[in-house]
């Protein structure tokens, strides 16, 4: 139940109003980083303080919340944020992607296609895609406002010069509607194509850096590349060992100290629902029989 000492979803109404204003501005200017007065949250920076504030500002009592961390519903970060909102907002929670109306995510986009009735909230550590190339904030702001994005390609050039291919595998820079270069948060580049033309509203919150940005539904998002080194949304070249899926993003799990390993879907809900539907991978067992 809601703990009466707190307002609905922890933040007071004026704060939520301020955050909603930032979100609306972000939606109006897709990919633009809107500054907002980030609050102290009862969790450390790096644990999703930005995402939590955006979620708090968007939640209604009727919402059904899903929280994932690297695709999983059952890791510490996901569990603690889910129970935080269950206690402070009293909203229903779920692990099923299709049933959720609001999904807060850290570093993944769910495999199940999203719909127009859903909001996807990303936790963002460093919202500025140019940060490691240009340390000065006034300069990066100027570069965004004047569309000077040549430097972003210098980073990709360096990748190819050193590794023979674009070695950036997560946090892969994208261009939104031919205007702003945006940091998609550290999602694997495998997920980048899902950013584009997505029916759901996508919101990005960076708590420590005090920035919110957004992708409205059906926004065109293009991953940066070179003509002769096109963008490649790669993944591990395996099938999931539990559910047998050949087209989901995989985690590599070391299973003993003799070098054996298995590949499993990073999206736990996707993997479970496939197994429930009867798909079984190399090392999988039918649902219910699992130890």
């Amino acid at each position: 139940m809601t703990e009466q000492a707190y307002n609905f979803a922890y933040l007071d109404e004026q704060t939520k109003r301020m955050i909603r204003r930032a979100i609306l501005k972000g939606v109006a200017v897709p990919g633009y980083q809107v500054p907002f007065a980030s609050r102290e949250m009862p969790m450390p920076y790096g644990w999703g303080t930005g995402g939590v504030q955006v979620t708090a500002a968007c939640l209604t009592p009727e919402d059904r919340l899903k929280v994932i961390d690297q695709g999983a519903d059952d890791t510490t970060n996901a569990v603690s944020i889910r129970s935080f909102f269950r206690r402070t907002a009293g909203v229903a929670v779920t692990e099923a992607t299709a049933e959720a109306t609001l999904i807060q995510t850290r570093h993944r986009i769910p495999e199940h296609p999203l719909t127009e009735d859903q909001i996807l909230v990303y936790q963002v550590p460093i919202p500025e895609p140019l940060r490691f190339l240009e340390p000065r904030e006034p300069e990066t702001r100027k570069m965004h406002s004047l569309e000077e994005y040549g430097l972003m390609h210098v980073k990709l050039y360096e990748d190819i010069a050193r590794h023979g291919a674009i070695a950036t595998s997560y946090d892969y820079p994208v261009k939104v509607e031919d205007r702003y270069v945006m940091d998609p948060s550290p999602i694997p580049k495998f997920d980048n194509p899902k950013l584009s033309d997505c029916p759901a509203l996508q919101l990005f919150g960076a708590g420590r850096e005090q920035r919110i940005y957004a992708l409205p539904p059906y926004t065109r998002v293009v991953s940066l590349d070179f003509d002769d080194h096109p963008f490649d949304p790669s993944k591990a070249d395996h099938d999931c060992d539990l559910c047998g899926s050949g087209d989901s993003y995989l985690d590599e799990v070391i299973t003993d100290d003799a070098g054996s390993r298995m590949f499993v879907c990073s999206d736990t809900d996707f993997c479970r629902s496939r197994r429930a539907a009867g798909h079984i991978g190399r090392l999988g067992t039918p649902v219910g029989d699992a130890a």
Binding site: H153, Y157, D228
Partner: peptide
């Protein structure tokens, strides 16, 4: 500078 003025062929 080439990339800054739009060169996109590695």
């Amino acid at each position: 500078r080439l990339m800054a003025v739009g060169a996109r062929h590695y």
